[in-house]
Lab assay of single mutants.
Amino acid sequence: GIQEIVAMSPELDTYSITKRVKEVLTDNNLGQRLFGESILGLTQGSVSDLLSRPKPWHKLSLKGREPFVRMQLWLNDPHNVEKLRDMKK
């Protein structure tokens, strides 16, 4: 599951990941809330907090790293936007 992926993950640049996620969401007119609930399993508040103030990787616990790994996996998925759009319906 995701825990193994997080444990094996190389250090991620949390700042550039969140910046990229925000760009993709904005460009495709997708909400942070939808993204947070569907992709990260987080509430709106947690998501906007994460996206606006990402902590550096080395300061995060494994649990804290999980959303960033999920974001990275989502960014790597060529169908990420379509999938999210489908969830919106």
Rank of each mutant, 00 (worst) to 15 (best):
D27W: 08
T26M: 10
T18S: 11
R33N: 13
K19Q: 10
L75W: 01
T14C: 04
G64R: 02
R20M: 08
W74D: 01
W74I: 01
S16I: 13
I5M: 12
L42M: 10
L34H: 12
R53F: 15
D27Q: 12
G41S: 08
W74F: 12
L84V: 07
D86T: 09
S61N: 12
Q72E: 09
L73K: 15
E66P: 04
N28F: 14
L51E: 04
S16C: 14
Y15G: 11
R20Q: 13
D27N: 15
E82F: 07
T18L: 03
V24W: 02
V24C: 08
D13K: 04
L75F: 00
K55S: 12
D27L: 11
L40I: 02
G41D: 07
I5N: 10
P54G: 00
V69P: 01
T26H: 12
S48C: 07
L84H: 02
I17N: 11
D86M: 08
Q72G: 04
V69F: 05
R85T: 14
P67S: 15
G36T: 06
D13G: 01
R70M: 06
S9I: 07
M71T: 01
I39K: 04
G31C: 13
N28A: 12
R70L: 09
S46T: 10
K22M: 14
R65C: 02
E66D: 06
I39L: 02
L84T: 04
L51N: 02
R65S: 03
L73C: 13
R85S: 10
N28Q: 05
P10W: 09
K55F: 06
H79V: 06
H79K: 15
W74H: 00
V47Y: 04
S46D: 15
K63H: 15
K88P: 07
V6W: 04
G45N: 15
K59G: 10
S48E: 12
R85N: 15
P10I: 06
P10C: 07
L42S: 06
D13S: 04
K22G: 05
R85Y: 08
K83Q: 06
Q44M: 10
V81I: 11
A7K: 14
K59C: 08
S38T: 07
R53W: 06
S46E: 08
V24R: 06
A7C: 07
D86I: 15
F68V: 02
I17P: 04
I5H: 13
N76M: 13
N76F: 04
L84C: 06
F68T: 00
F35P: 00
K89T: 10
L60K: 08
P56S: 11
D13W: 03
R70Y: 00
V21K: 00
G1N: 15
Q3H: 08
V24D: 05
S48R: 14
L34E: 13
P56A: 12
R70P: 03
G36E: 09
R20F: 04
F35M: 00
Q72M: 15
D27E: 13
L34M: 11
D27P: 03
K88A: 13
E11Y: 15
P78N: 05
S48K: 13
H79Q: 14
K19T: 10
T18R: 00
L42H: 07
H58Y: 08
E4K: 11
E37P: 00
S38H: 14
I17G: 02
Q72N: 15
D49A: 11
K89Q: 06
N80I: 01
L42C: 11
L51D: 03
I5P: 08
K88T: 09
K19W: 03
I2M: 08
F68D: 03
K22H: 05
T26K: 13
I2N: 12
D27K: 12
K55R: 09
K22T: 08
R65Q: 05
E4L: 04
N76G: 09
L30C: 05
K83M: 08
V21D: 03
D77F: 03
F35I: 00
L25S: 01
S38L: 12
G41I: 00
D86W: 08
L75Q: 00
K88C: 05
E37H: 03
S61P: 06
N28I: 01
I39S: 00
M71I: 04
L40F: 04
S48L: 12
N28P: 04
